[in-house]
Design a protein around this nucleic acid. Structure first.
Length: 256
DNA sequence: ATGGCTACACATTGTAGA
């Protein structure tokens, strides 16, 4: 069982790459963020024609999330029922007995932006909802673009980033609050190469110089964490022509 | 030096991303 999160930065632009990547990587569940498509423009027919199930919720220009799955999905939930939000940033479904939550956490922009308190309150509400979901679904995976680098190891130059958005103590505390629910950062369950990141700036040769941050994560409840055998970042599609600025993160789980 | 790149929209510049 392979679970993936990938911020594609426009599904309209990246759909051919998503198909190419899925051909190379026959995974079970692919959580996508930043589709940037309203539901009437979502490529549902194409994805289903390729043999996948798909659920999605989007808006114009910004945000938008989707789950592409080899297996049928039930109990689809769009957005956090505990948090009024016009922005389409969450979709969840039950797949093969697992609760899969696909989340696009607000960026926050900067610590003095009005988007920063929105990010923190959004994360607090996410924590509360995930806590409730874990009571119903012991097998739960929270996948997405968290827009948080949990640790200095997750930043190419921690000194340069100190006190910035993505690494600030309140954001890291919000990430830890999710861990404290009993979730495991699957990436950190294993020995990893140093300076492994999931996002690189398009500018300043960010990818070539590996000036990145690890902000895309797969958090697993205990029954899933115990079955997890690896978690890796796939840098390959970041090298393609016209790439997303994010790379996919893949967690592999043993069968029950 | 708040620049640099990419995507999007009531587009030819402004906003957002991270």
């Amino acid at each position: 069982m392979k679970l993936v999160t990938w911020n594609v930065n426009s599904l309209k632009v990246r759909l051919p790459q998503v198909f190419q990547w899925l051909e190379m990587n026959p995974v079970d569940v692919l959580c996508i963020q930043e589709t940037k498509l309203t539901d009437d423009k979502f490529p549902q027919t194409e994805i289903e024609a390729a043999g996948y199930h798909v659920v999605f919720t989007g808006q114009k220009t910004y945000n938008g999330v989707a789950i592409i799955s080899r297996h049928p999905m039930t109990d689809v939930q769009k957005n956090n029922p505990l948090f009024e939000d016009e922005q389409q940033r969450i979709i969840a479904a039950t797949i093969e007995g697992m609760r899969i939550i696909c989340a696009y956490v607000p960026n926050g922009q900067a610590l003095d932006s009005e988007k920063y308190p929105y990010k923190l309150s959004w994360l607090a509400a996410l924590r509360d909802w995930v806590q409730a979901e874990m009571q119903t679904y012991p097998e739960l995976a929270l996948l997405g673009d968290y827009n948080i680098a949990p640790d200095d190891r997750d930043v190419h130059d921690p000194a340069a980033w100190e006190g910035m958005n993505l690494v600030s103590p309140p954001e890291r505390a919000a990430f830890q609050a999710l861990i404290d629910l009993g979730l495991s950062d699957s990436f950190r369950q294993f020995e990893q190469p140093e300076k492994t990141f999931s996002w690189w700036d398009y500018r300043q040769l960010g990818f070539r110089l590996n000036k990145g941050v690890r902000i895309d994560h797969i958090l697993l409840s205990k029954p899933l964490a115990e079955r997890c055998t690896s978690c890796v970042v796939d840098r390959v599609p970041r090298k393609w022509e016209q790439p997303s600025d994010h790379a996919p993160v893949i967690a592999t789980l043993n069968p029950r």
